[in-house]
Simulated assay, not measured.
Amino acid sequence: MFVPERLRLARQRRGLTLTKLSEISGISTRTLSSYENDEYHPPQESLDALAGHLSVLPEFFQRESIDVLPPETVSFRKLSKTTAAKRDAALAAATITLEFADWIHSKFVLPNPTVPTLDKLDPETAADVIRTRWGLGVKPISNMVHLLEAHGVRVFNIAAECREIDAFSFYRDEVPYIFLSTDKTGERQRFDAAHELGHLVLHSDGGQDRPQGRAKEAEANRFAAALLMPADGVLSQSMRNATLDRILAARSYWRVSAMAMTHRLRELELLTEWMYRSTCVTLSEMGYRKAEPGGIVPETSQVLRKVLFNTEVKSATRQASDYLQVPPSEIRSHIAGLVPTAA
């Protein structure tokens, strides 16, 4: 039986308005609206055509009813700079990812979530608590994605069409999810991952609406900096009035961007305001604002690799696509950059 919510989900996944889908499909906007509002069901010929235009299988429209994630439950990095269409496309893609996550959960035993809620603490203290509880000490975190997955966070890629969103996170049924843009440098991906963990730790009680705004983003940034570059660890390196060469060596040690390292030194009052600004200008001239020369290799997912290359689950990508009634390319779009996509 036709499920109207599925048509809306597939349309939003492609970032299409009803008007645009009408232009592509040749079906009137009014007719499409009546389909989505369950006023009457489309004939099979129309379903087949719509499936082709929306890159799903016709059976996708017959799966159980599902609602797109509501915006108020998600913490977005760049919501103010994002159009509603892009936001809705990202939420629709994430909704399909959740179905993929459900398939994974049905096949594999995954780590239970152990992300605490520390909304009464300031970001610096909260980051210290996480480091203590997770046994990290004051040393660099070797792999942020592996760390998150070990503590029950499900990590996925933001679909290429939705990269303007940058990164986002949310809880679903008390399970935390983080979506990353995997076309960034390895250092910036790590900071995004730590930033989203900050939202989960500081701005959520496991299911309520997620606060938005610059103040919350600043708190998540401060948390990420403190988690990746703990104060005690940085202070032990005698970085007061550090030269550019020392800053670059430190960013390699902590596996962060040169700009993030410089900003952290200013936060800890190890650089004067003049030195901070001067260093940022020099780094920008050297290409460090938009890239990370000599940087690290982007991190990958341990969980997804085990899922997709498990010898007991043959052709995992094909199985998942059959389950979701989408082409394998749709599955790959949610894991691109996190695992080899030849699975």
Rank of each mutant, 00 (worst) to 15 (best):
R133F: 13
N241M: 03
H199M: 06
A127N: 10
V138N: 10
A215K: 15
G207A: 05
A159M: 15
P123H: 10
R163L: 13
I104M: 12
G233N: 01
N157K: 06
A126V: 03
A226F: 04
R210G: 05
V201F: 02
G186R: 07
N143M: 06
D183Q: 15
V129A: 07
Q189V: 07
P111T: 09
L180Q: 03
T182W: 07
H195N: 09
R133S: 12
R131S: 10
K120V: 05
D192M: 13
R188S: 14
S169P: 00
G186F: 05
D205M: 07
D183V: 09
K107C: 04
V234N: 04
K184D: 14
E124L: 11
I158D: 01
V234Q: 04
E187I: 11
R214M: 09
L136S: 11
A167L: 15
P123D: 10
L121R: 13
M229G: 01
E174S: 13
A159N: 03
K120N: 04
P116I: 04
H146R: 13
D192I: 06
Y177I: 00
E187A: 04
Y177A: 00
V109R: 08
P113L: 10
I158M: 09
A225D: 12
A101T: 12
V138M: 01
F168E: 03
F179N: 00
E187K: 03
V155L: 07
F191W: 04
M229P: 00
V155M: 09
D102Q: 13
